[in-house]
Design a protein around this nucleic acid. Structure first.
Lengths: 208, 208
DNA sequence: ATCGATACGATACATCACGTATCGTTTTGT
DNA sequence: ACAAAACGATACGTGATGTATCGTATCGAT
């Protein structure tokens, strides 16, 4: 009983006409194009099928619903992402990674992610898939990198990597969704600096 | 041309039978109950009308759609919230406020907010209303409080209050939506401590 | 008291998208 | 050659949406 939501490759048991792989690609591209232009709600399965030039049944044979198609399109786009490329210093590498993520959030990846996050609130399968294929892989890589930073002395010895991820990256998700301001590199740098240096005045509690 | 989304009080021009205020209340309660139990998608206007014991037209006369009803129910619940009650110290008051918010997020307020955030991705009116009636009022109050903290010397002189809000509060929204872990008081305290003290080792960059 | 205007419950209606089911055809493996 | 599955097309049942009335009830103004 494999998780079927990401579709495409429900292995056929034996003989019969094989699926046309071009259809997978055509549907993913059509869905991404239409959904990015009009939103998930406004796009019907018929519209995707028409844009892709295929029958609707060919789609339902691969994915259970619209959200699953968009999920496939999303993970296909972002899967080959690499995390924490080396930079001039350990901490600088973190900052650059945050900038890379912010840049992705500014583009189509961000728009698709917004749509999927919204859908995840209604559909547990989407939520699970998103956690499994987007959130958790990145968190795990970050945890490894942060633990290394603790051992090497770049980070405080008592930081919890999980909390550190949230303090650094949650603001990017926040701006992605709340529209309180643009996701500029300047903003990323500010979040990074504030989180790294701390917010309170260092020496005790000086009276005014 | 008043923003009509929050409904209820589209002032009647002159004579005629006045609206029954009990209906507003009954619909809000019915909608909150059903939506919290089954999710926004699974609840139809008919179901809300039936639960409230009113006709569907009485609802459409007040709100344009389901999301607007939930929005009204939400702001009615959270409007009288007070921010930053005095505590044993300036910083402690911030921590307590974060805990209060986390507690709200754990309950019905959090569930409704999740639903509205998801809806805001499809519907600009919901997004605007949410910004106007939930996000911005709280941000503005926080900015005032944080600027006071800067002047009194509790916070670094060079912190940007807007960024500070994001670093402290975005993690709560993150956990509210992503399901990476529970929104416990312990978690809130960790975010608070990490953000206040900073993540990097303080003295320069010590080699391992 | 009468009258216009609006609210209200109920119901009918047209529209639309969804997901399923076939039909005839095409393409594979055996 | 033959079974099996994919494919395009299309029809179908279902459920929700938003609008339009109908008859009745309740207000303000005259």
């Amino acid at each position: 009983m494999p998780s079927q939501i990401s579709g495409e490759s429900t292995a056929k048991v034996s003989g019969g006409r094989p699926r046309n792989p071009n259809i997978d690609q055509a549907v993913l591209e059509a869905a991404a194009k239409l959904v990015l232009a009009n939103g998930l709600r406004a796009v019907s399965m018929d519209a995707i099928a028409a844009e892709a030039g295929v029958g609707r049944m060919a789609i339902y044979r691969r994915w259970p619903n619209k959200a699953a198609i968009v999920m496939s399109a999303f993970v296909a786009r972002v899967d080959p992402t690499t995390l924490f490329a080396p930079a001039t210093s350990y901490l600088e590498s973190i900052r650059l990674q945050m900038r890379t993520m912010a840049k992705a959030f500014r583009g189509k990846d961000g728009a698709l992610l917004r749509i999927l996050l919204a859908e995840a609130q209604h559909c547990p399968e989407v939520a699970e898939e998103l956690r499994e294929r987007w959130t958790m892989p990145r968190r795990k890589m970050a945890i490894v990198y942060f633990e290394q930073g603790i051992q090497e002395g770049w980070l405080r010895a008592d930081v919890d990597p999980n909390t550190m991820i949230d303090v650094l990256y949650a603001p990017l998700y926040y701006r992605l969704q709340m529209g309180t301001g643009p996701l500029t590199d300047t903003y990323v740098d500010q979040v990074f600096e504030h989180a790294m240096r701390g917010l309170r005045r260092s020496a005790g509690k000086p009276r005014s």
